[in-house]
Design a protein around this nucleic acid. Structure first.
Lengths: 161, 161
DNA sequence: TCAAATCCTTACTTTTTCGTCAAGATTGCG
DNA sequence: CGCAATCTTGACGAAAAAGTAAGGATTTGA
């Protein structure tokens, strides 16, 4: 199970922009340098994010990229959906997306697991905004530990063995 | 974020074997046919699972594959770890695995998210055994909805915006 | 002992993802 | 205007993942 390169570095680029003050922008070379990737690579990522409506840009001298919405209104699940196709995707063509009914024979037991994971990840990412990532690193950290604690106490019913 | 083909189809093969009665086996052509993949492909997956100690096999006529441990002692997180490298992996070389300290400059806010996701997924998969997949489809389903419900009630503290 | 059934292993091909390159378009400034 | 800084776009190449092919090894049973 993997976070794709596009997801990871696209998210990093957005974090850079979320750190800017009002009216500030970052150029491709600046973003590339800070993330340790090539300018061309950054260019492609920012182009994707632009097309998806997360960032805007101005060309020419003094130009650059900036968020097109407040960081507090951008949630991680939206970002991941745009950089990949879904929050969590699987291969079996019997799924339409991940959530539709499986056409495999009745003894396919893995569907509920994939659906469950999808919901878990989707929901967790939906709780985190870009702003939270920038401003409240400790709080995000605390939140995840809180969730983890809840999950730990939640389950030992119905399974066991 | 993606479930790799190896993870998905490897898991499916194990589910097939977990459905067997004592002393029964399945041959590669049988497994391949049931999952809609080529025999060669099934062969590679079963070889991985064999090497990892989840299945055993006998050769010759009447041979085939079978689980080397009871399905109730095999948890999904172990399986995923073997079929890929980890339950959830990321790209940044600054992580050693996902859980070590990030070497990026201090303003890298995404580390806690990756670590949090890792723990979430790891823990969820650790709750599900192969046996549960086969025998208790409804119970697994119910469990995930239970976890999801807990997570939903758990978080709105510390983030909000 | 031979033949058929079966797994085992390595090498290869295809597809997808990742990343680069280069030419083009737009803007600001002297 | 004309140059330089900047983003935009599509084509290309490299690397990784997915899947295929084929010959070898082992076992059973007649």
């Amino acid at each position: 199970m993997k976070i794709s390169a596009q997801e990871e570095y696209g998210l990093r680029c957005l974090v850079q922009l979320a750190n800017l003050g009002a009216g500030e922008t970052l150029t491709l070379p600046q973003i590339a340098e800070r993330e340790g990737i090539s300018v061309a690579h950054a260019g492609k990522l920012l182009w994707l994010l632009n097309r998806a409506g997360f960032v805007n840009s101005t060309r020419g001298p003094k130009g650059g990229y900036f968020l097109s919405r407040p960081a507090s209104e951008i949630r991680l699940n939206e970002i991941i959906k745009v950089l990949d196709e879904d929050v969590l995707s699987s291969h079996c063509e019997s799924y339409t997306g991940v959530l539709e009914k499986c056409v495999h024979t009745g003894d396919c037991g893995i569907r509920p697991v994939i659906v469950g994971l999808h919901e878990l990840v989707e929901h967790a990412l939906g709780q985190v905004t870009l702003a939270a990532l920038v401003d409240n690193e400790e709080k995000v950290d605390a939140m995840f530990h809180q969730i983890e604690g809840m999950v730990k106490r939640a389950q030992p019913r119905g399974l066991g063995q």
